[in-house]
Structures are given as C-alpha cells and as structure tokens.
C-alpha cells in the first residue's frame, strides 16, 4: 500500500473517491489528485513507451516541467499526467511513441 496512512506532521485532505480507467482496467483514486499520483498509488509506474527505443517511462519531475509522463487522456495524447487532475470516469492510456493529435476524435478530449 503506497498511500501514507499516518504522518507525524502532515494531514492529507483528499477529494471523494472516484473510479477511472487505465488501459481499460478500472482503478480507484481521489478526485483532484494528479492522475500520476493515483496511478502510482495503484502500482502503475510505466506511463508510456519512449519514441525511439520503446523503453518504459515513468514520471520524473512531477511538477509539469520535464514531459516524462505523457499519456493519452480521454483520447488526447501528450497530456502531462503529473499535473492533470483525476476526474470520475476519466480514461487514461499508455502512450506508445509520439502522440498523434489526429487520434483525437470529434467531441473527445478538450
């Protein structure tokens, strides 16, 4: 269990529990936390495959600077999931290679 249950100094205020989907699999997290944090807590560390050598990649900076954590979120590629907030029912997919904006279907993403 990677969620911190007790801390000597900090109290964590969490949003309500919500369900979301990672590569089709249903997972649970808290509304408003970064998608990467919810995935990490659920044991998911590989977020994408690198563009040239298809190597597994996770997050690195966790504050939206480095682009190591790009994933496909509700059909939109290249989303930095370390800062993108978790919402009920959001669909998150492993990104393989470069994101292709033409994948976005009308009415999906934002």
């Amino acid at each position: 269990m990677l969620r911190i249950q007790e801390h000597p100094i900090l109290r964590f205020q969490k949003g309500r529990p919500v369900r979301f989907y990672f590569d089709g699999k249903e997972l649970e997290g808290y509304e408003g936390e970064p998608i990467a944090a919810a995935l990490h807590a659920a044991g998911v560390k590989v977020l994408r495959e690198s563009a040239r050598f298809y190597r597994p990649r996770g997050f690195y900076c966790a504050i939206g600077n480095c682009s190591s954590c790009l994933m496909i979120v509700d059909g939109e590629p290249n989303v930095r999931v370390c800062t993108e907030k978790l919402r009920e029912g959001v669909r998150v997919q492993t990104q393989r290679g470069k994101g292709d904006l033409r994948q976005i279907k009308a009415g999906e993403g934002n």
Binding site: K45, V46, L47, R55, P56, R57, G58, F59, Y60, C61, A62, I63, C82
Partner: peptide, 9 residues
C-alpha cells in the same frame, strides 16, 4: 527507468 525520480518529485 521508472523509479528513478527527482528529489522534488
């Protein structure tokens, strides 16, 4: 590799 993280992260 995933698991190599910055201290800030």
């Amino acid at each position: 590799l995933p698991g190599v993280y910055g201290a800030g992260a």
